[in-house]
């Protein structure tokens, strides 16, 4: 897998690079972004920033991949988009993130997270709940009352969207944890979709899965972008190349390069991007 990608990434060796190009305001690169990250810096405490001065627009109904070596701040950036990084007590940030015209840091978390859903690296269905209750958990746990028929409808629609309905429709009231890893992850995506968010954030959603389950999820994401905007952190370059429309390359907390995936994989502008894509580090 990796090697075919590397072949795609054959680089004209004579091309020269400016050292440390900082791309100012790549927001301009994206037409009518649904989400604008504006000069965002995030710290977990003190004056050390895990990501620094990141600016980027996220394109509507596209898949945007965030790549970069371990520890470069991918998860931090992703979590800052729905404020999950605030789980850690001493975080603070500079800059902002705008969903439409709203500053997400001025929304309350329920409002925000109904609009921006999240899926994690390890499938994490609620172990005490049935498949059905897992899908509807966002409503139940927040005390949002729905009629039985509304719930049924949401559950079926969400499970169909993640192509899990046919596999589980006869076992809706069994525990979600009895499913396979790939099924669990699709269940977790369904749980996020049930809220009908505008954006779905996924942090390495396939890194704990086998290749077959992975490719199912990839197919799914490509289908889902019709209705949702998807931001995906991935360690897997071939995955980014296969399914993403736009790619970010991060390095040491900085957004080094951001653009159309095709273009980044064929003619990266920054030397560090090229080195990463050709496997020189990371």
């Amino acid at each position: 897998m990796e090697s075919t990608i590397l072949k795609q990434v054959q680089m004209p060796t004579e091309q020269k690079y400016k050292e440390n190009v900082v791309i100012k305001n790549p927001i301009e690169n994206i037409e009518s972004p649904v989400l604008k990250i504006d000069d965002l810096s995030v710290s977990y405490g003190g004056d050390k920033y895990a990501i620094q001065n990141v600016s980027a627009g996220i394109a509507k109904n596209k898949i945007t991949a965030i790549m970069g070596p371990s520890g470069c701040g991918k998860s931090t950036l992703l979590r800052a988009i729905n404020r999950m990084h605030e789980l850690y007590p001493n975080t603070h940030n500079k800059g902002g993130v705008y969903l439409g015209d709203e500053n997400i840091y001025e929304l309350n978390p329920i409002q925000l997270r109904r609009k921006i859903g999240m899926v994690f690296q390890r499938p994490n269905p609620f172990p005490t709940m049935s498949i059905y209750d897992n899908v509807i958990a966002g409503f139940n746990l927040n005390g949002i009352k729905l009629k039985r028929s509304e719930k049924d409808e949401i559950v079926e629609k969400s499970l169909r969207e993640v192509a899990l309905w046919d596999e589980v429709k006869d076992a809706l009231h069994n525990r979600g944890t009895f499913l396979s890893g790939g099924q669990q992850q699709r269940l977790c995506i369904a749980r996020a979709l049930a809220y009908t968010p505008d954006i779905i954030l996924l942090d390495e959603p396939t890194s704990a899965l086998d290749p077959i389950a992975t490719s199912k999820i990839e197919d799914l994401l490509v289908k889902l972008k019709k209705d949702f905007t998807i931001v995906l952190v991935t360690h897997n370059m071939s995955q980014a190349a296969r399914i993403s429309d736009y790619s970010m390359f991060m390095y040491l907390g900085e957004l080094v390069e951001y653009g159309k995936t095709k273009q980044m994989f064929t003619t990266p502008k920054d030397k560090r991007t090229e080195e990463y894509l050709t496997g020189k580090f990371g």
Binding site: M84, I110, G138, L141, N142
Partner: peptide, 29 residues
């Protein structure tokens, strides 16, 4: 109990006290 469970609930906008009462404690029952 894995921390990912808490994250799952928080990522649905569930307030902390409900995460503890409705997700974490039932899981550890």
């Amino acid at each position: 109990i894995p921390g990912t469970l808490k994250e799952a609930a928080l990522s649905l906008g569930v307030p902390y006290h409900k995460v503890i009462l409705k997700v974490i404690l039932p899981t550890g029952i």
